[in-house]
Design a protein around this nucleic acid. Structure first.
Lengths: 357, 357
DNA sequence: GACACGTGCTGAATCGAGTCAGTGCAGCAT
DNA sequence: ATGCTGCACTGACTCGATTCAGCACGTGTC
C-alpha cells in the first residue's frame, strides 16, 4: 500500500462539485447563515464520508490560533498515585471537550519549568494547568500570569488565576466525625506535621480535626510530629509509644504515615482497630493493601484534574479558589465498638482488584 | 499591559533590514549554503534577541508536517507507579530532543483508543507510543500499523513495529541468583500465576527463575498460584502455609504479592528474612515501605519510557524487540545467613524520602 | 565591451484551512 | 430596458512559517 496523501478540504470540495469555501461553511455549521442549499450540503457531507476526510489541525491552528490542546506543567518527581489519577481525570475531561493533554514534567527544576511553558506556548496550547505534588503556596512563572491558566493543588496569592484544591478543612472535620461517631473521640492524636513551610494541606487538616473534636467537647489530645513517610512515622510512633501514652485513635496525615503507624503499633503489640483506631488522608491504593484496610479521607485526584480542565475551558470561570470535596474511603481501621456504621459498603479498592502485572 | 501580538518572523526581518527569506535561512542554520554574510547574520540574530522572537510552531507544522510532538496512548486505569515513572522517563527523553508528549488515556476502551489515535494523527504527532499496563501480547489498531509507532511494555506479533520491554527472563534469573548467593536456593517457591492469557511477564520471570535454579542443581520447589494483588496473595499464602510446607525462600511475582505474603507470614509467626527470604519484582515505592524493606527486581519504567521515545525518534531504529535490563533494588528481605552481600548500599527508596503532602 | 561566474540576497509559491466581500443569476416591479 | 432584491455560491486574502528559483551586482577573463 503506497503512502497516500491525506485528504484535504479541496478534495472534498472537488468531489462535491463546490468551492472550498462552501465545503468549509458546511463543515463549520455556518451553512444556515451562508444559505447553502440542503442538497449541496448533503453532497458535501457525502464527500466527507466517502473520502474519510479529517481536518488538518495544524492548518486550523495556524488560522485560528487555537489548538484544542491543554498543557499540564507538573513538578512530580517520582510519584505514582497523584500524578496518574489526576492525569486520568484531566485526560477524560479534556476528551469530553475535544481537547488533548500535553504534559511537561519539570522534576522541580525552575529552568525546565520555564522552558516547558515556552514550548507549550510556542505550540499555541489553549491553556495551561500548573500543578504541584505538594499542596502548597507557590509563585507561578511570569509567563503564566497573563494567560489562561489554572492552578491545581496549589495557590498563588499574587497571581489572579483560578485554583482547584481539595477541601482539606472539611476533610479534617469528616475524619474527626468518623472517630466521634465510632465513640473514639476521647484521646485522639494527630500523627504528622508539616515540614515544608509552603505546604498548606497539613495545617488545614489538623484545623478541621481540632474544630470537630472541640465542638464535641473532646479536644485534640496532641500531635506526634514526623516527616510524611512510612519509616519516619514508624520511628516517631515507636518512640512516642514508649512514653506510656494511651491513645484511643490516631489521625494520620497521609496513608504512608498510617502504614508506618500500623507497623509501630504491631511491634508494640497493639491491634488496629480494637486497641487503637486509625484514620488517615489520601485514600490511595495503599489504604486497601493494609490489614485491616485503612479508613481514609480520599483526595479526589481525578475529580481535581477534571475540574481544572473544566475551569480552564470555561471562559466565564472566575479567578477564585475551587474546593473539591474529599470523600470517605471506608476500611476497617476505625473501631465500631460504640456502633459506628461503616455504611455497609466493602472497603473500596481503587480498582486494584483488576490490576495485574 | 495590553495583549501584544506575538513577534513574527516578518518583524525580525524588518528590524534587521532583510527579507523574511534571509531571516529564515539564518534561523535554520542554512546561512552557509545560502551565502548570508556574517554581518547580516549577526543583524538577524540581534533582532531575534531584541524582539524575543520565538517560532510559531503551528505555522511550522503546517509547512513541514511535523510537530515535534509524540503521542502516548495508554490503557492504564488507576495505576500509579508504572504510568508516572514511564511518563517521567518519556517526558525527559522527549525534552532532550525538543519534543513534547501528548497523552491519551483510553481506560481500556477500544473505541476511545481509536478516537484518541485519530485525534493525535489530526494534530500531526510525529509518532505514537502504544503502551499497556500489563506486559502483554496485543493487536494494535490498524491506524498505527503504517505509521511511526513504538510498542511499550507489549508486543504485537503481527505488526512490524519496534517494541520496548523489560528483560523479564534475565530478571527472573537475577532474582534466583540473589537467593542462590544468599544460600537460600534450596526450597524456593514462586508466588503468583498469570491469569491474563495475553500477559507475558509472569511466565518469563518464572522461566528465568527455573533456569537459574536448575543450573545450580536446586530446582524450583513449587508455585503458589494467586491473583497478582495484596489480599489474594495473603489468602493464598495463608492457605498454603497451613499445609505444613517449609519454604526457604519465596519469589513473589510483584511487590503487591510480596506485601500480602509478608502479612501471611507474620500471621503465621514467620519472620522475614530469618525464617523465610523474600524477593519480588517491580521495585516500586512499596518495596521500601515494607519492614524489612523488600529486595525487588526493579522494572526500569523510566528507562523504558525514555527508550521508547528514543527508538521512535531514531529513523534508523529497526523494528525489533528491545529488552531493557531489570536492576536489583536491595532491601533486607533476603537472608544473608550464608554471606550474601547486599553490596553495602542502603535500600534505595525511589525518592520517597523527599515526598511530602 | 561582452560574457561568465561567484556572491548575497529576495520574490513568490506553498502548506491547509477560515472568512470577508463580492458575483452571477433569477424573478419581479417600474 | 433598468434597477432592485434575495438566493446560492465563490475568489482571493490571511494565518506564519519554509524553500525554490532567480535577480542584481561586482569582478575577472579574453
Amino acid at each position: 500500500m503506497s503512502v497516500q496523501r491525506r485528504v484535504r478540504l479541496a478534495d472534498v470540495a472537488a468531489r462535491a462539485g463546490v468551492s472550498r469555501t462552501t465545503a468549509s461553511y458546511v463543515l463549520n455549521g455556518t451553512s444556515a447563515q451562508m444559505r447553502i442549499s440542503a442538497e449541496t450540503e448533503q453532497r458535501v457531507r457525502s464527500a466527507v464520508m466517502e473520502l474519510g476526510y479529517r481536518r488538518n489541525r495544524s492548518a486550523l491552528s495556524l488560522r485560528t490560533a487555537t489548538t484544542q490542546t491543554i498543557g499540564v506543567i507538573s513538578d512530580f518527581v517520582a510519584t505514582g498515585h497523584f500524578a496518574s489519577q489526576m492525569l486520568r481525570g484531566a485526560s477524560a475531561a479534556a476528551r469530553a471537550q475535544d481537547h488533548l493533554i500535553v504534559i511537561g514534567e519539570t522534576e522541580g527544576d525552575p529552568a525546565v519549568e520555564i522552558q516547558m511553558i515556552e514550548e507549550m506556548l510556542d505550540r499555541q496550547v489553549d491553556g495551561i494547568i500548573y500543578t504541584t505534588l505538594v499542596t502548597a503556596e507557590v509563585r507561578v512563572p511570569a509567563q503564566l500570569r497573563e494567560r489562561r491558566a489554572v492552578l491545581l493543588n496549589c495557590v498563588d496569592p499574587v497571581a489572579d488565576l483560578p485554583a482547584v484544591l481539595p477541601d482539606e478543612l472539611a476533610g479534617g472535620r469528616s475524619a474527626a466525625d468518623v472517630l466521634l461517631a465510632a465513640g473514639a473521640g476521647e484521646r485522639v492524636y494527630v500523627v504528622g506535621e508539616e515540614v515544608n513551610p509552603h505546604a498548606i494541606a497539613g495545617p488545614q487538616r489538623v484545623q478541621g480535626v481540632e474544630e470537630a473534636l472541640a465542638t464535641a467537647g473532646t479536644p485534640l489530645a496532641g500531635v506526634v510530629p514526623c516527616f510524611w513517610d512510612v519509616e519516619p512515622a514508624y520511628e516517631a510512633v515507636t518512640a512516642w509509644l514508649a512514653t506510656d501514652v494511651t491513645p484511643t485513635a490516631l489521625v494520620c496525615l497521609n496513608d504512608r504515615i498510617a502504614m508506618g503507624t500500623y507497623q509501630a503499633l504491631a511491634a508494640h503489640g497493639l491491634q488496629v482497630p480494637s486497641d487503637v483506631s486509625i484514620i488517615s488522608f489520601d485514600g490511595s491504593e495503599l489504604a486497601g493493601w493494609l490489614r485491616p484496610a485503612l479508613t481514609s479521607v480520599r483526595i479526589p485526584y481525578a475529580e481535581l484534574g477534571a475540574l481544572a480542565v473544566q475551569t480552564l475551558l470555561d471562559p466565564t470561570a472566575p479567578t477564585t479558589v475551587l474546593r473539591s470535596p474529599m470523600t470517605l474511603l471506608h476500611g476497617g481501621s476505625v473501631s465500631s465498638a460504640r456502633g459506628y456504621q461503616s455504611s455497609g459498603r466493602q472497603p473500596t479498592r481503587t480498582g486494584a482488584g483488576r490490576a495485574l502485572r
